[in-house]
Simulated scan of single mutants.
Amino acid sequence: MRASVIVIDWHRPELTRRALAALEAQRGRVDLELVLVVNEARPGAAEAFAAEFPAVVVVAEARNTGFAGGVAAGAARAGGDVLVLVNNDAVPDPDFVERGLARLAAEPDLAAVAGHVVLEGAFRRVDDDRSTDDLVALGGAAWRRSDEGVELVNSTGVVVDASANGVDRDWLAPAGTASAGDDPFAFSGAAVFLRRPALESVGGFDPSLFMYYEDVDVSWRLRLAGHRVGYEPGARVVHRHAGSSSSSGQLVRYRSMRNRLVVTARNGSRRLLARVVLRTVLRLLRDLVGVPYLDGRHRRLLVLEAVPAVVRARRAGRSARRAAVVRPRDLERIWFGGHPD
């Protein structure tokens, strides 16, 4: 079983070098190919990576194709039968690739295996005097970096709720309290092992998504086709949260809202899509009378660009939904916290 590890760089060479060095050290343990995609490559950037890492396949992209486009470009150049994605701001443990491949070998029905992603550094709980730099869990608990804190989980896969919101499973759970190994609905693109035939059978990554929800989209299509998405606690990476891009801001909010609509249109039932559209409209209406979630420019963009994209995605996914091994509504009942009746 040969693994091709794909790493995407966008103007963060210092972080990318850390990831590549940690992966290069694993060559003796497994049959491994490394593919680096340099998005919006500046003059000499790709050549510098090639000189420092001569065994790495370097793909230079003239423009920023985002994470989804970068993965698609890397997959086109990769030769492995397993594609492994690792964020460039993550450092994998020495046995990361070995542990993920072993899980795939042990369970042939798995099409994808999510890795165990922990946050770089240590953190302590903050009860008051909160800062905008604090990380906030879904339940509202805030955590701040501290030399005497604890290790926190970033992701053990992705879960999706009844309104198609995708969130990292076990986000900010203290180490040792995360999921033991049960399957998530989706993998996180920060660290995942994908069987190439299964990925290609569902169409691969959609470059038009650019960033956010591209991992949920592929996982959703895999599950509709009857495949499993698993999780391997031993395939661990240490992730610098938002090391390559901001985790907030207007672009992130816009992309999250836009891509949730598009991915639901492609893969979801009519009822789920109607619910997501309704919630998005209500969100935009609240923006007009309160503190806006999106600024005026991104609200206009959501209407002018996202609406045609949703229509195209609905049409493009029609044949796959009809041929699905698991019906969209059945999948939603099982995984999305109850179907929105």
Results as ranks from 00 to 15, higher is better:
Ala73Ser: 15
Asn64Asp: 14
Asp170Leu: 09
Pro328Gln: 10
Asp89Leu: 08
Ala73Thr: 06
Arg279Trp: 08
Gly204Asp: 09
Ala323Phe: 10
Ala265Asp: 10
Arg275Met: 11
Gly296Ala: 13
Ala68Thr: 07
Arg18Gln: 15
Glu148Gln: 14
Ala137Ile: 04
Arg223Gln: 15
Ala190Thr: 07
Val113Lys: 00
Val159Lys: 03
Leu285Asn: 07
Gly100His: 01
Val84Lys: 00
Tyr293Ala: 05
His298Met: 10
Gly69Val: 07
Glu120Cys: 02
Arg103Leu: 04
Val311Cys: 09
Ala73Cys: 10
Ala102Thr: 02
Gly234Met: 08
Val311Gln: 10
Glu332His: 11
Thr132Gly: 06
Ala72Asn: 06
Glu305Val: 11
Val310Ser: 03
Thr264Asn: 08
Ala320His: 03
Gly74Glu: 08
Arg125Asn: 03
Leu23Arg: 08
Val150Thr: 10
Ile334Val: 13
Ala190Trp: 02
Arg18Glu: 12
Leu209Ser: 02
Ser155Gly: 06
Asp93Ser: 12
Pro340Glu: 15
Trp220Cys: 07
Arg253Thr: 15
Leu194Thr: 01
Glu40Val: 01
Val237Pro: 04
Ala142Pro: 00
Ile334Phe: 09
Pro328Arg: 05
Arg271Cys: 08
Asn87Ala: 11
Phe67Pro: 01
Gly234Trp: 12
Leu101Ser: 00
His239Lys: 02
Glu107Gln: 15
Arg124Cys: 11
Glu200Asp: 13
Gly234Cys: 11
Pro174Asn: 05
Phe336His: 14
Arg283Asn: 03
Arg333His: 11
Val153Cys: 15
Val59Ala: 02
Gly139Pro: 01
Val202Leu: 14
Val326Ser: 11
Val117Ser: 04
Leu85Pro: 00
Ala313Trp: 04
Leu85Cys: 02
Arg322Asn: 08
Ser247Val: 08
Ser245Thr: 15
Ala242Val: 04
Met257Ile: 03
Asp109Lys: 07
Glu107Phe: 09
Ala324Pro: 01
Leu101Thr: 00
Glu33Gly: 01
Tyr212Leu: 14
Ala198Met: 11
Phe67Thr: 10
Leu104Cys: 05
Ile8Cys: 08
Phe187Met: 06
Val289Phe: 14
Arg223Trp: 11
Pro13Thr: 07
Arg130Trp: 15
Arg103Ser: 01
Leu23Glu: 05
Arg283Ala: 13
Val84Gly: 01
Val277Tyr: 07
Gln250Ile: 11
Arg42Met: 04
Leu302Ala: 14
Ala3Tyr: 05
